[in-house]
Design a protein around this nucleic acid. Structure first.
Lengths: 106, 106
DNA sequence: ATAACCCTTGGTTGTTTTACCAAATAAGAT
DNA sequence: ATCTTATTTGGTAAAACAACCAAGGGTTAT
């Protein structure tokens, strides 16, 4: 494996890793429906404001979202909407996995 | 968010997390070309036998791969091949992100 | 039976993540 | 100017992760 190939795979893994946390994945799914400010996300989830903000920072650094400050609030949105296209496949994995998962997807 | 929705998102995040490590992502890509035994993966990468084995266990528990013992060796393969279909989108994120990433994808 | 090979498991250590709290910054309202 | 409101940043402690080494369990070959 060349250094370039290695760097590419690390970059890709980093994006998947960013989405590989329940809170962050949930946020990405929320943003698929359109931009939201941090406060809206905080409101919908049982977590600290700072926690939400830090998760958004992770997504931002991974290149999954971008932010824009408007007035008092900061709005986040998906940078590349296709990100959530692979959810059906993820769910197919769950389907294929175990009995206990099947009812999750249905 | 109901308990069920929460469980679903955790399960999905777990799959993405499993793929969110350079070595594991690399393995998944290798297996996209067909099953391989652990020894073949170890040979192609600069890592300990036990490290490779543990990474495979993570992928297995996430439902991404399945294993089959044949003779002395254990063969791993992708359980749901579509897993790697979203790589183009991941690369699109890289493209969209920063100058320093662009040359990685090309 | 012994040896050699393939793989997993257990243990250890260092690193990374995560969540919360408190404090700091920034913008709009009074 | 002061006070909210919205968000980020810094700090800290607990938990999870990752890599290596050593040891153990099967399986085939001798």
């Amino acid at each position: 494996m060349t250094a370039k190939e290695k760097a590419l795979i690390e970059a890709k893994a980093n994006i998947l890793k960013a989405l590989g946390h329940p809170t962050r994945l949930w946020m990405a799914e929320q943003l698929a429906g359109g931009e939201k400010c941090v406060c809206e996300l905080v409101e919908d989830i049982d977590a600290d404001f700072s926690t939400v903000s830090k998760h958004l920072t992770v997504l931002k650094q991974a290149g999954v979202v971008i932010d824009e400050k408007r007035g008092k609030q900061v709005y986040y949105r998906l940078k590349v909407p296709c990100i959530l296209q692979f959810m059906p496949c993820i769910e197919a994995v769950l389907q294929a996995t175990a009995q206990r998962h099947i009812d999750l997807v249905k």
